[in-house]
Design a binder for these strands. Structure first.
Length: 766
DNA sequence: ACGCCGACTTAGTAGTATGGAG
DNA sequence: CTCCATACTACTAAGTCGGCGT
């Protein structure tokens, strides 16, 4: 279980009861308000056209000369490329019928399986590897001409528990039919996680569990669970733990064998053939059933995510491709031949009724191409960003409400890297982005401080206290003016589609999310430019990570603090303290050996006085304690081993003997503390001095590491590295600074970014 | 004109592999 | 060599955005 330091659920106690209740019941309140409030017609969705009779328009600043859609036109570079490709797309769609009723299954899957088996390991290498980034690509809508694959892997059937493992209801074992037992097991497995404590999760799980129980004929011993609180899943939980334990206990050979078997089973599904080239498939495993783990306060969290059968799955491949055989007696839901999409299979999921896709892996050419395009588009923004900024600064004073809102929204997105923020439904977690910000998410503190406090994507809290332009502050005051109150939209005229349409006027394809990519990569470039080309690889790496961290903070990429974090920081601090102590001890030794040294360089010895007796005593105690612990553990471990080997165990006296060593150490320290004199081990002062130097170095290293650890504890660097920072920046950095690329990119990232590794030269800039 | 939905990117976390300190 | 913490991968939820149908 983990603890998030920045409490994003923003505990009830610090919120006024009013605002928190509004937060939770947002929709209802909104709906009611608008019912009888004359705000309704104006603020809700229909925004744009209602402009002229809006209460806000009568505000001093805004005349009624509203010209809704007249958005500044600029950079009409909207080339015709788009239209040609969209035509192509249409014709293709027509050519490729959406519904291809259950095509007759042809045989020989082996035909396709044949070659991957032998050459899979090295096939990604040299010879005629496809370097798409060196080719011209004209049509964006057609993703492939041929596509062959072997389908997907389904999770194993449910294996019922041994009959003595049961869930208990009100103290009695319940004899569940397998279908219901499986669902109970899903919950039991999570018993020690946060989910199991979450009332929504409990409620949703229990209601779905009862449904399944009913469908499957009820408990076979007649017990009818009615109250969640009387259910006891602990026996099931214990059993799962035991199984885990047993799996861990397997011998290395057995583990290896199991792994190999799995590998062999999965091999055919790992690759597919796109235009004749072998490419990796990403998620070829169909998601197993389980309890939906929605994030934040998701109303549906805990609901049963049902099992997916071949009948639910739609395959996508070319017309000539052999259709993979569906598992034992099953049939595919549908086989499609749609080359305008890049998915291999899909199914509909039962929680929010949306699609899940089986797609190419991150290192595939298609993914690589769109990644490349994404970064090129962001780079293109360089040429337009001045115009965009100039414009939104100007429009902060526009006479048209919509334009002002657009201006402020653009400012937020550009400066604070907010997401677009689309509307969400009642049955999703209440999270917001720029356009969906509400009254209560923005607090204004004159003269120009703004406090953002809201839950963004994944219910990650966005909290920032910032200074904004005077005019932005003025506008926000206006946007929050009565009769607006908590629950109401801050930008009542705006939604992402309006905003994005506005942005496209500056640059084709420009949308809100491009700003995040642009600003992230731009920030990275700027930060990297500041790093001097000096020092060790480790030092440069540290600076690279610091730059990466700046970007992650900009994008508000957080992670939960790991459970051991506080302890590990504590440990690291103690370690440093001990090193300091050792150093001081050495300095004392010198002082004892030769008083003249002190006179020569009193500064060098000054720190000796910094160590107060209590502190020293504490360190001594810790060290002795550690020593004892070490021996106790060693003793226990040794005996464990001997027992296993059927050898004679060590007698208690051995432990006593060891303990005496610790005892001695303690005595020595005590004496040292009393007399202030150190037992001299060597009289070579030069040698001691070099030892001190080494200690200094270690202390320095440890301190840097500690700082890094603390700075990183709540920040996730990965997300920005994977999605926002143009990989060519990292490649160039490594080339220029002589840092091995694998220090910066893991194997999978090097694969994913192969296009960048091979195409960026030393002078490349974002 | 607009809301819905299909398809794609972006996101944090759980669980496993790995490698460095003791 | 073992153990523990960290690094990395796999997983899947949660966004964005364009296009389609009404």
């Amino acid at each position: 279980m983990t603890v998030r330091l920045k409490d994003e659920t923003s505990s009830e106690d610090e919120d006024a009861p009013l605002s928190s209740s509004i937060q939770r019941t947002k929709r209802t309140i909104e709906d009611c308000d608008y019912e009888d409030d004359d705000l309704k017609s104006k603020t809700v969705n229909t925004g744009i056209k209602k402009e002229d009779n809006d209460a806000y328009d009568s505000d001093e600043a805004l005349s009624k000369v509203a010209k809704p859609k007249k958005i500044v036109k600029r950079a009409k570079k909207a080339v015709s490329k788009k239209s040609s490709s969209s035509n192509a797309k249409k014709s293709i769609k027509r050519a490729a019928p959406r519904k291809t009723p259950k095509v007759v299954r042809e045989v020989s899957v082996e035909q396709q399986n044949a070659d991957p088996e032998d050459d899979s390991k090295e096939s990604t290498e040299d010879v005629d590897e496809f370097k798409w980034w060196e080719k011209e690509n004209d049509d964006e809508s057609i993703k492939w001409t041929t596509l062959k694959h072997n389908g997907v892997i389904f999770p194993p059937k449910y294996d019922p528990l041994p009959s003595h493992i049961r869930m208990y209801y009100d103290g009695n074992p319940v004899d569940l039919p397998p279908q219901a037992e499986e669902v109970a097991g899903f919950f039991a497995a999570l018993l020690e996680s946060d989910h199991a404590q979450n009332p929504t999760f409990q409620k949703n799980f229990f209601s779905d569990f009862l449904d399944v129980l009913k469908e499957s004929g009820g408990a076979r011993n007649g017990i009818k669970p009615k109250d969640f609180k009387l259910c006891d899943f602990s026996k099931m939980f214990d059993y799962f733990q035991l199984q885990k334990e047993q799996r861990k206990q397997l011998s290395p050979q057995e583990k290896k064998k199991l792994k190999q078997e799995k590998e062999e089973l999965e091999e055919p599904y790992k690759f597919c053939w796109l235009d004749g080239r072998k490419e990796q498939v990403g998620n070829f495993r169909i998601e197993p059933p389980g309890l939906f783990r929605g994030r934040g306060a998701h109303p549906k969290t805990g609901k049963l995510k049902r099992r997916v059968y071949p009948e639910d799955v739609v395959l996508n491949l070319d017309k000539e491709a052999t259709i993979p055989e569906a598992p034992d007696g099953h049939k595919w839901g549908e086989v499609r031949h749609d080359n305008t999409v890049q998915w291999l299979a899909m199914w509909r999921e039962n929680i929010s009724n949306s699609f899940k896709y089986v797609r190419f892996a991150a290192n595939s050419s298609l993914k690589g191409m769109s990644d490349f395009k994404k970064f090129e588009k962001a780079r293109q923004l360089k040429d337009y960003i001045d115009a965009v900024r100039k414009d939104y600064n100007k429009n902060l004073k526009s006479k048209v409400m919509l334009e002002r809102q657009i201006a402020v929204a653009c400012y937020f997105i550009d400066v604070f890297a907010l997401r677009a923020g689309g509307e969400k439904a009642d049955d999703e977690a209440d999270t917001v982005g720029c356009c969906s910000l509400r009254y209560e998410h923005v607090t204004l503190k004159p003269p120009n401080t703004v406090i953002f406090d809201f839950l963004g994507k994944d219910s990650i809290r966005f909290y920032q206290e910032v200074q904004v332009e005077k005019q932005v502050f003025k506008n926000l005051t206006l946007f929050k003016k009565a009769p607006k109150k908590p629950g109401h939209q801050l930008f009542d005229r705006l939604d992402p589609s309006i905003l994005n349409k506005h942005l496209q006027n500056y640059m084709p394809g420009l949308t809100a999310k491009v700003f995040r990519t642009y600003n992230a990569s731009k920030t990275m470039q700027d930060q990297l430019d500041l790093i001097p080309n000096e020092g060790t690889v480790a030092e440069k790496l540290l600076k690279y990570n610091a730059a990466n961290r700046t970007v992650a903070i900009l994008c508000n990429h957080q992670r939960t603090v790991t459970k051991g974090h506080a302890a590990s920081v504590q440990k690291a601090m103690e370690r440093i303290e001990e090193l300091e102590w050792q150093k001081i001890r050495l300095k004392r030794t010198i002082m004892q050996l030769d008083e003249a040294e002190v006179k020569k360089n009193p500064k060098y010895f000054a720190e000796v006085k910094d160590l107060v007796k209590e502190q020293e005593a504490a360190i001594h105690k810790r060290l002795v304690e550690k020593e004892r612990e070490k021996y106790t553990k060693k003793f226990a471990r040794e005996n464990e081993k001997r027992k296993f080997d059927k050898e004679e165990e060590l007698p208690e006296s051995v432990l006593q003997e060891w303990m005496e060593k610790a005892e001695e150490m303690e005595k020595e320290y005590r004496q040292e503390l009393d007399t202030g004199k150190v037992q001299v081990k060597t009289s070579d002062i030069e040698k001691i001095k070099s030892q001190i130097e080494k200690l200094d170095q270690r202390i320095e290293n440890c301190s840097i590491q500690l700082k890094d650890k603390e700075d990183n504890s709540q920040v996730a660097l990965g997300t920005s590295k994977i999605n926002y920072i143009d990989p060519r920046l990292s490649v160039v950095f490594c080339k220029k600074f002589g840092v091995p690329l694998e220090k910066v990119f893991t194997k999978s990232l090097r694969d994913k970014f192969k296009w960048a590794v091979e195409s960026a030269d030393e002078n490349w800039r974002f």
